[in-house]
Amino acid sequence: MGKAVLAVGVVLVVVALMIARRVYGEPLKVRRLLLAPLFELAIGGYQIATHGGLPAGEWLSLALTGALSLGLGAARGATVELFERRGVLWQRYRLRTFGVWLAAFVARFGVRALLAVLGVTTAAASISSLASGGKPHFSAALIGTLLITSGLGFLGESLVLTPRALATGVPLQPSGRTGSPLLAILDGVRGGDRPAGGARRRR
């Protein structure tokens, strides 16, 4: 269980850093869009495979919440702002991006809670314990399912964001090139952002 917690900690740090960059804005790279979901899916799959798999009810839960995550992740990808900065395409999360994210979290939790109440999954004890003020039990397999649903959400976002990015006609930043954060901030102060394929954006 200690290794599972460590794996989750690493994933959370990576995801938190990625979200922080996208809130400010970062150059869009298709390769980077795919790395985060594949990383989470791989870690989640490993957790499940190395801890005896899942009961039938949990597979059903994973299928339903995974489909929700993929679909709402695609909806989230449609809300991401694309703009041109210093001649390359950038992306930035907006307030409604986090609104879709919250909706996905509530939907996934609702499905798991419903399945637990119906006795389909083995999560009923955890939910009952949490409701009574106790500490829920998170097995390595359950952690794996949470990582997979999160990874599917990022995958859905990438599947929508990638064709949107390519359709703008704005060049993507070459791999290996790193921009200066200070220069990016100064560009923002000067109003250097342009909507992808459009005129200068007003702040």
Rank of each mutant, 00 (worst) to 15 (best):
A4C: 10
A4R: 10
L6G: 00
V8C: 14
G9K: 08
L12N: 05
L12E: 04
V15G: 04
A16W: 02
L17D: 14
L17G: 14
M18E: 00
A20E: 06
V23K: 01
Y24M: 11
E26R: 05
K29V: 02
V30I: 04
L33F: 09
L33C: 09
L33G: 06
L33S: 09
L35S: 08
A36N: 05
A36M: 12
A36E: 06
P37T: 05
L41Q: 03
L41F: 03
G44M: 14
G45I: 06
Y46S: 00
Q47A: 14
Q47P: 02
Q47M: 15
I48T: 06
T50G: 15
T50W: 12
H51Q: 14
H51A: 06
L54D: 15
P55Q: 11
E58F: 10
E58A: 05
S61P: 06
S61Q: 07
G66V: 00
L68C: 13
S69P: 01
L70I: 06
R76D: 11
R76G: 07
L82K: 02
R85L: 13
G87P: 03
V88A: 08
W90K: 08
Q91N: 02
R92L: 09
L95H: 02
W101A: 05
L102G: 12
R108A: 15
F109E: 15
V111A: 15
V111D: 08
L115S: 08
L118W: 14
V120C: 10
T121S: 11
A123V: 13
S128A: 12
L130P: 03
G133Q: 00
K135W: 01
P136Q: 03
P136D: 02
L142T: 01
L146K: 04
S150R: 04
S150D: 07
F154M: 09
L155Q: 02
L155G: 01
G156Q: 09
G156D: 15
G156I: 00
V160I: 13
T162W: 11
A165R: 04
A165H: 00
P171T: 09
L172K: 07
L172P: 05
Q173W: 08
G176F: 10
G176Y: 00
T178K: 15
L183Y: 13
I185Q: 07
L186F: 14
D187W: 06
G188P: 00
G188M: 09
G191E: 11
G191W: 14
D193M: 03
P195E: 07
R201K: 13
